[in-house]
């Protein structure tokens, strides 16, 4: 029975996605990367993040709906006719936001994309307002992994990426803020941190606009100099 229900829910959800794509112009593909981006990894938040969001959903559902239904039952006992008259309103207020929130959690999870190329991290999320931000490794100043107790239970963590400039507090939870990228609900956050840090370490600069290496030469100069050396060695 529950399998049929699950299938029906999946069918309804696919229909909803059709509406999102057609009417709201929500892209259902991960953000693209420029050609020649090398090793491209397309990530989504871990399924644990979905469970984490649903945990909060159920917690708030129980609190709010108990309050609303409790108040309604009290009213029904106190003034029965008014309670009966307000029944559709009370149950509607109790149930409809829950359905919307539950669907919104899934849509949020499905519209969040993280793409990591050899040069940059690209984060896209949002349904009403789609925000996409691209941060190159060259500019990353630090990477921070945050995990609360509940997130530890669901085996997920948030990875914060900061670039120079500041302007916002790192506590801000919005995904695409100034000089700040947030990858939420990552299953293997430490591996991701190592990946980002290793790629950021490939860049010799401090990420503050200093383009050249200490000698004043870029890697292109060095490459040509090495070619000159290689040309001279067999001739000698």
């Amino acid at each position: 029975m529950s399998r049929t229900a699950g299938k029906a829910a999946a069918w309804v959800y696919r229909g909803l996605w059709g509406v999102l794509v057609e009417l709201l112009k929500v892209p259902d593909q991960p953000p693209n990367t420029p050609p020649g981006s090398g090793d491209v990894r397309s990530l989504k938040p871990s399924p644990g993040f979905l469970r984490y969001l649903k945990f909060w959903f159920w917690l708030w559902l129980v609190v709010f709906d108990l309050a609303i239904i409790g108040a309604w039952v009290a009213l029904l006992i106190w003034i029965p006719w008014l309670g009966l008259a307000l029944a559709p309103l009370a149950w509607g207020v109790a149930i409809i936001p829950d359905i919307i929130a539950y669907v919104a959690i899934h849509v949020r999870w499905d519209t969040t994309w993280y793409v990591i190329t050899d040069r940059a991290v690209r984060i896209r999320r949002g349904v009403w307002i789609i925000r996409e931000s691209t941060i190159t490794f060259e500019n990353i100043q630090n990477v921070e992994v945050r995990q609360g107790p509940l997130q530890r239970y669901f085996k997920i963590a948030d990875v914060h990426i900061q670039t120079a400039g500041g302007g916002t507090s790192p506590d801000a939870t919005a995904n695409t803020q100034a000089h700040h990228g947030l990858l939420q609900g990552i299953a293997d956050a430490h591996e991701l941190r190592e990946l980002i840090m290793s790629r950021a370490a490939l860049s010799k600069t401090a990420g503050l606009g200093d383009e050249a290496t200490p000698a004043g030469l870029s890697s292109a100069h060095r490459r040509v100099l090495e070619e000159i050396r290689d040309l001279l060695v067999p001739a000698a």
Binding site: W128, S133, T134, T163, H179
Partner: peptide, 8 residues
């Protein structure tokens, strides 16, 4: 440093 594309 960063490029953002926003579409409401």
């Amino acid at each position: 440093q960063d490029i953002h594309v926003t579409q409401s």
